[in-house]
Amino acid sequence: MKIGSTLNDGKATDRINDEIRRRNSDPRGIIFRTFLQLGLFLALLILTVLLVDVVQNGWGTLSTRFGDFLSGTLRSRSIDEKLGVHQGLVGSFWIAVTTAIVAFPIGIGAAIYLEEYAPKNRLTRFIEINIRNLAGVPSVVYGLLGLFIFVNTFGKWTGGKSLLSAALTLSILVLPIVIITASEAIRATPQSLREGAYGVGATRWEVVRRQVLPYAAPGILTGTLLAMSRAIGEAAPLILVGAVTGRLGTNPGFLDLGALKERFVAMPIVITEWTQNSGRDPGFAGAAAAAIVVLLVFVLALNSIAILLRNRFEKRRK
């Protein structure tokens, strides 16, 4: 109002011109912007410090005995030359494979149903809300579910406190993530693709199979890779379904299916255990850091591939 009433005043025009010119030297704006940059800078700094700190701690182990560390097992003393993460890697490998086999088909199927088939009714809405809630349930609670169902109720088939129980628990944990990301990818498919196919008489399934899924595939893959990296980084549910925290006698190979029904550890459990052992035997801190570096390589590789994939996908669409 004020501006309007004084616009004809020459002074006001000058002032506005001044303001526009001064935009670059606006002190409050600069402070605000600096504050924002500081926030971002802090986030980056933290990530850098974290990586440097961990690599620094683990470097002793990684640089001197990297091969032995990868092939070694859980040992009672940090100076043991057989100390290593092989059992943890095998556990995490099978967890990743199982989530891929169990969670992905179910998750993608559910996403297709919700996006392509589901009528807009109460049941559909209920399922959708339910999935969003499941995604927000703390991971440790999934551990209780796994303990109750896979370890105790179906212990006969899963082998009780076994790698299979753990992997199934984590499959359930990542299922909502798979469904949500897959739904987003499917929703992003242009309507024209579907209409074109319907126009030539395709059934709904044929439309999904030939048009929607190929188009949404990179997006779905991105989501599944992120879910996989989440699964191999989780520790809390594994503690509840009985990961070994002392000595694990077995050291199966990567492709040994029998390992599924045996007691297990996984990389995050190895890290937790060694971190706690460092009170008694300080050398374990270095071993834990080295194990973290190994885990991070896998997790960050999965994440980076997922991010790259999605960025290319988005670019292609534009």
Binding site: S76, G246, R247, L248, G249, T250
Partner: peptide
């Protein structure tokens, strides 16, 4: 038990000894 298991491993590599505490 763990230390004994580690030594036992050299004698009987086929036996898996799991120890929790």
């Amino acid at each position: 038990s763990v230390r004994v298991a580690e030594l036992f491993e050299d004698v009987a590599p086929g036996v898996a000894v799991n120890v929790d505490g």
